[in-house]
Design a protein around this nucleic acid. Sequence first.
DNA 1: GTCTATAAAAGGATAGAC
DNA 2: GTCTATCCTTTTATAGAC
Lengths: 203, 203
Amino acid sequence: MEATGSPPSKREAILAAATRVFLELGYGAASMDTIARAAGVSKQTIYSHFGGKPALFEAIILERCDRLLESLPAVADAGSDAEVALRAIATRLLELMLTPEFVARFRVVMAESSRFPELAEVYYRSGPERATARLADYLARLHRRGLLDVTDPHLAALQFFGMISGSLFLRHVLGVVAPPQSVDLERHVQTAVRDFLVAHRPG
Amino acid sequence: MEATGSPPSKREAILAAATRVFLELGYGAASMDTIARAAGVSKQTIYSHFGGKPALFEAIILERCDRLLESLPAVADAGSDAEVALRAIATRLLELMLTPEFVARFRVVMAESSRFPELAEVYYRSGPERATARLADYLARLHRRGLLDVTDPHLAALQFFGMISGSLFLRHVLGVVAPPQSVDLERHVQTAVRDFLVAHRPG
DNA sequence: GTCTATAAAAGGATAGAC
DNA sequence: GTCTATCCTTTTATAGAC
């Protein structure tokens, strides 16, 4: 909104600080005092700009909601080999989802999904859902060109993403650091993509 | 612990009420006052039995932690067809994970995984990890009998569970109720199992 | 707009009677 | 063991000066 110029305004300072504090402490434990101190402003300034704690929270969650998707490769549009493209997509997805910031954001959105149902839904629609739709489009194109056998692109996309990220993300989001059976990410991606291609081999 | 007899003791009333309140409101928003009222006891009685809020929380999470796994079918041990067995496992897994209680429990454990790191780890180890290990065992047996080609049972189990539950659970845990593209669970399971079998066909 | 100071409320924990 | 009443801290939100 506000097409304010270049100087790092108080508003931006508040947004940055609030993001840090909310993601680190969660909604409940993050106090307006802490955020104010972290931003180097007074509490009143925050209330002037955002109105209250709930509004500030929604602002910082929705702020970068779309940017997460942008980083998913448009590699699907490149005319490269399907296996190469799927590996690139899978690798990028994992790199993104295992990021501490992504995990923290996911945690806090889910934790507050009862208090902010609309927020959780917007988060899902602008993130996972659009990513799935984009992959489904790509798979449909491969199907039409006869390179892959995908009768239900949407379902296939869901299962592909689940196979890639499902178990690993679960472990990460629960904060399990030292797994008994460590997983080699590269090998994981390679195996999953190969299995997917075998299952959808045309003819 | 306490081999107390049959009468619905105050302790059990507290545990039941605390479970309800914690799962519904989350750790932060659940006050000891609310729990006391819900249990029909005074606050002091709770403090006498459990010592404090953190201890009470850990008690109610760890209480049923193991029971979740028990309900996963030991169907793998039956000498039935691999496809039938995998479908049964997948179906049971989804039935379990899409339960409101499971989702609520998962949400609250993850939301508090920063405050209770050990708790989150115990939760993971006694739930997802053991389930994965059990499935990996089953896949290894199928491999030895030449019925399936599974060189890395643990990895395959992770990917199978991910493919089955990953995307659907994500959507559920974010509270998305009305999906744009609804998913037929039975069809989902059938497709996933078939793809898995094709990818691991021996020979 | 921004700050300091304060109000008003809620929650975790405890003291003391029975 | 259990209850009632209370203390103390923290937190959201606002009032008023500059």
